[in-house]
């Protein structure tokens, strides 16, 4: 009985950590520009697919990972420069629609370059699962959790302790005022897209051994990541992490104790319940709109 509960919990936390990493990427760009970047899932895909194809070409795993992350970073900058920046006076909704277009474009490109098959990536460390009180934990789950924790710590430090991080926050709060105090807002935006792409690609790489990877893996993972970010309160790093983990655990518990048919329904009703009682999410900033 207890071992089953533990198994559901492990499953939930692993998926949840993935959602949390994706949600963090949403949070970052949202913080800088109030844009919800729906191409976030594609960064995830680029990370996984580039690593797989580079290792298949004989590049050592570690170098392949670095190159894939760099590729995603370049793509993030390109996305901001070529798609978002030219429409700088457009309102947020237009920008969001642009990111949807960009994601379809990137996915199409990936399909042409890498084909439509699913690909495997080997576990970073041993394939042997770890036994804990009768439940098993994939060793890769520890990697997901560990990398996730490190990334969160780095992000917290970045936003609270560094000038660049504060510049991003300042830009998100008031673009004009930020410009008045000498922050180059276009550069800040570019930076936000780059960091978010790096984050997404790292998430894509650490989860690829668990989920496999393919050109369209970004669609559903991106969507779940967005749900996690919304539950946690868009813009809150803590919220993204808690939202992601909560979503994953609820999904796994629903599949285990209720019925696997209702798993997704339970997860998506969660967003309704949370947003109904706490419209800004669990950790959303209490912002008052001035009229």
């Amino acid at each position: 009985m207890f071992s089953e509960f533990l198994q559901y919990l492990f499953t939930g936390i692993t998926i949840g950590a993935t959602y949390a990493l994706i949600a963090l990427g949403f949070t970052l760009i949202y913080n800088a520009s109030h844009v919800i970047n729906f191409a976030q899932g594609e960064f995830l895909m680029i990370g996984g697919m580039a690593t797989v194809s580079l290792t298949a070409m004989g590049v050592p795993m570690l170098l392949a990972i670095v190159l894939a992350v760099v590729l995603a970073g370049v793509l993030g900058v390109a996305l901001q420069r070529l798609a978002i920046a030219p429409a700088k006076n457009a309102d947020v909704v237009t920008l969001i629609i642009i990111t949807i277009g960009a994601s379809i474009f990137i996915r199409g490109l990936a399909q042409l370059v890498w084909g439509k098959e699913y690909h495997v990536m080997p576990n970073f460390s041993s394939d042997e699962p770890i036994q804990i009180f009768g439940a098993v934990l994939n060793s890769q789950s520890l990697w997901v959790l560990g990398v996730g924790a490190v990334l969160v710590a780095v992000l917290v430090y970045f936003f609270t302790r560094t000038l660049t991080g504060k510049a991003i926050l300042a830009t998100s709060m008031n673009k004009d005022a930020a410009r008045l105090v000498g922050i180059r807002t276009q550069v800040v935006l570019m930076l936000a897209f780059m960091v978010s792409a790096l984050l997404g690609s790292v998430a894509g790489i650490v989860v690829a051994p668990i989920t496999f990877t393919s050109y369209d893996i970004g669609i559903i993972l991106g969507l779940k990541g967005f749900v996690a970010a919304a539950i946690g309160g868009l813009g809150s790093g803590m919220g993204a992490v808690v939202g992601g983990l909560a979503l994953g655990v609820v999904e796994a518990m629903a599949a285990g104790y209720l019925s696997s048919d209702y798993k997704d329904a339970v997860a998506f009703s969660m967003i309704l319940v949370v947003l109904f009682f706490m419209p800004r999410g669990l950790f959303g900033a209490k912002v008052v709109e001035r009229v």
């Binding site: 089953e4 559901y8 939930g12 989860v207 668990i210 669609i219 696997s260 997704d264």
Partner: peptide, 20 residues
């Protein structure tokens, strides 16, 4: 009798249920 969605990435919960 368990199911999973087409894009699910983990089915250990369903399998644990069946095993039990």
């Amino acid at each position: 009798d368990e199911t999973y969605g087409g894009s699910d990435t983990d089915m250990t919960a369903q399998l644990t249920n069946i095993r039990g």
